[in-house]
Design a protein around this nucleic acid. Structure first.
Lengths: 110, 110
DNA sequence: CTTAGATACATAATTCACTTATGTATTAAT
DNA sequence: ATTAATACATAAGTGAATTATGTATCTAAG
């Protein structure tokens, strides 16, 4: 991202939506998928991603399954029913935000 | 704003664009105009606005003229040529950001 | 075969834009 | 007279991020 400031507040929304669209995913996989979808423009840092995942799990939005791949351990995350509700809420919020900003900045988005 | 987190990083962009569209404005006027344009959804706090204006002035993006209205003092801000360039940059950045987010979140905006 | 880069997780320290709180003072409305 | 709106300003505190650091495995290149 050119202006990383704008990204603030969007991490949860991104993680939740990508998990909804792709099903079960592990942390590193999420970073790669987001990088891909954003054409390299959004690169999630581990220092932000892992704490965010842990927080969402603690809040009951995500559940985890640990899997051994060779000697490595992968932690797969997926949405709980509560998490599913939250995704909708967060995405709607974001779309509303964009509409509002469009009015304030007088720009046609899309 | 329902989710004030999303607003982070947009303050400068908002202030600059509103100043571009409305010409000479004073701080309080900016808050009112933004409130109006956003249908009450974005309410700039003074603690954020005034430091932001001072910063932009210190960086040569804004110039000020002080005017006495009765016994009150109003500080009018307007864009410098440098400020004009910055508006374009910031608005473009924001539009790019929205496009990127649209791809990541798989939502049609607009 | 060893070394660099990618994969995979995690957490602590720090930063910084913002919110909240506080302060001063004028003007308008009830 | 008192409250709310107008109008500026700055200091203290917050919290989500960045940056830095640590551990460990797998793969490709030379």
């Amino acid at each position: 991202m050119h202006s990383p400031e704008l990204l603030k507040g969007t991490l949860q929304t991104i993680v939740l939506k990508v998990l909804k669209d792709n099903g079960r995913m592990y942390g590193y996989e999420i970073t790669q998928r987001v990088k891909e979808l954003s054409d390299e423009r959004i690169v999630l840092t581990e220092g932000a991603l892992y704490p965010a995942l842990h927080k969402l799990e603690a809040e009951g939005m995500l559940r985890t399954e640990t899997e051994a791949i060779g000697k490595r351990v992968r932690k797969y995350y997926s949405l709980t029913p509560q998490g599913r509700s939250l995704v909708k809420e967060r995405v709607n919020e974001f779309v509303e935000f964009i509409k509002t900003m469009g009015n304030v900045l007088q720009v046609n988005i899309g």
